[in-house]
Design a protein around this nucleic acid. Structure first.
Lengths: 220, 220
DNA sequence: AAAAATTTTTAGATTTACCTAAAAATAAAA
DNA sequence: TTTTATTTTTAGGTAAATCTAAAAATTTTT
């Protein structure tokens, strides 16, 4: 059994490991709003518990057990986000902090039943995949919107940027999850993209287009 | 803002204060599965924060602020219990421990929306009243089943004993919340009560009858 | 490859919520 | 009203998670 804090470390390491193989002390410290010295202390503890592999000065990697634990927390976080948006009508940019707390409630039964109550969703309100109870992620084929060509169609199924500012921006443009879109033009000058969205036309910058995920086979 | 632990102390003091005016150190310690010395420490802290009134050796009482905080936690606890039973199909004897964790999630918005989602329930699955967001309890007129006379009718609306063993026992007898009952006989010998429950007849001991609450005007 | 910069770790403190053991206050019994 | 028992508090200590400041290791630059 892990403490609230240990769980947060595992989750942070898990997310950082999606980008780099060896996760560095400073990166963890920055992500967790704490000091490198505190991170070193905790890493030692997690290593003693067999949750991470750790060589001094060389960063950490999650062990099999550590990774499974982290995935379980991610699962809880994303299921709660679905609950907050689908059942309690929160907006997708309002759910992160509360889910951050709810993810630590430790009852296997609770999560199983919540999963069922929500209809076994495969993705959270930001389009991030929800692992099943065995920690397996559904295979998904997302393409970044920026990679589409003029005339291509698809459905918005995710984002790779979760800041409130970004999500609010998309919300205002009407670019929310599940919306069907078609590319009507790509500006040579600045790479901004013209999108056909049901009836209206919207224009987004290249930067925004980079962070929107599209699938051509419906919601997944 | 209170810590998880401080919230638990306030809640415990609140519940103990329903029975005695001045809450004693030992009573808190027993309830919280901790030592009297630890309780003294925490009481001092709560007194410094203005959440309890405390005179050495004389026990504690909640201040207005302390009481409101405690009621808010009770509100959360009971709303979550309703969620677990009504939406996730938990049995009424399975929800307490999980609700004990959920009650500490601190988001006012979350609880408002949960309350609405559940249809503003007035009582939890054990029949305990749920205060509204201003901390006010709905007036309820419960009678203990033991006080009913032969021929009296009513609806089961609560219990005053929350142990899993007791709740499981009631479950087995079919004496669950909302069930309509009629007293068909009271045994002189041991005070056990014969109950007419839809079609079948059940017999409960005097001890059990003491802990069942009845109302004659439907669910409240 | 030596010097400089960066990253990481160690050492020693602090805070929160506990604990044990002993002392002090209060309540109950003789 | 003493003595005894119970309750409560104090004193001093522990473990978890954090911190600052300084030392050590690694990486980058010259």
């Amino acid at each position: 059994m892990q403490s609230y804090t240990e769980e947060n470390y595992l989750k942070t390491i898990y997310h950082l490991a999606e980008k780099t193989i060896n996760v560095q002390t400073n990166a963890i410290a920055e992500q967790m709003q704490t000091k490198p010295a505190s991170v070193t202390d905790m890493i030692k503890k997690l290593a003693d518990k067999g949750l991470v592999d750790y060589i001094k000065y060389q960063g950490v990697t999650l062990t099999e057990i550590g990774k499974n634990t982290a995935i379980d927390i991610v699962r809880k976080h994303r299921l709660w986000e679905v609950f907050l948006v689908d059942k309690l009508n929160f907006k997708w940019d309002e759910v992160h902090d509360v889910a951050e707390e709810l993810e630590h409630i430790k009852s296997i039964e609770l999560i199983e039943r919540l999963d069922e109550f929500l209809g076994f969703p495969k993705a959270d309100p930001h389009g991030d995949p929800i692992p099943d109870k065995n920690g397996r992620f559904a295979k998904t084929q997302f393409i970044k919107l920026i990679e589409l060509k003029i005339g291509d169609q698809g459905t918005i199924t995710g984002v790779t940027q979760h800041s409130s500012a970004f999500l609010k921006h998309l919300e205002k443009l009407g670019l929310t999850l599940g919306k069907k879109i078609q590319i009507s033009d790509v500006t040579d000058f600045d790479g901004s993209v013209e999108i056909l969205l049901s009836d209206k036309q919207v224009n987004i910058s290249r930067e925004v287009a980079k962070h929107i995920l599209i699938s051509s086979n419906g919601k997944n």
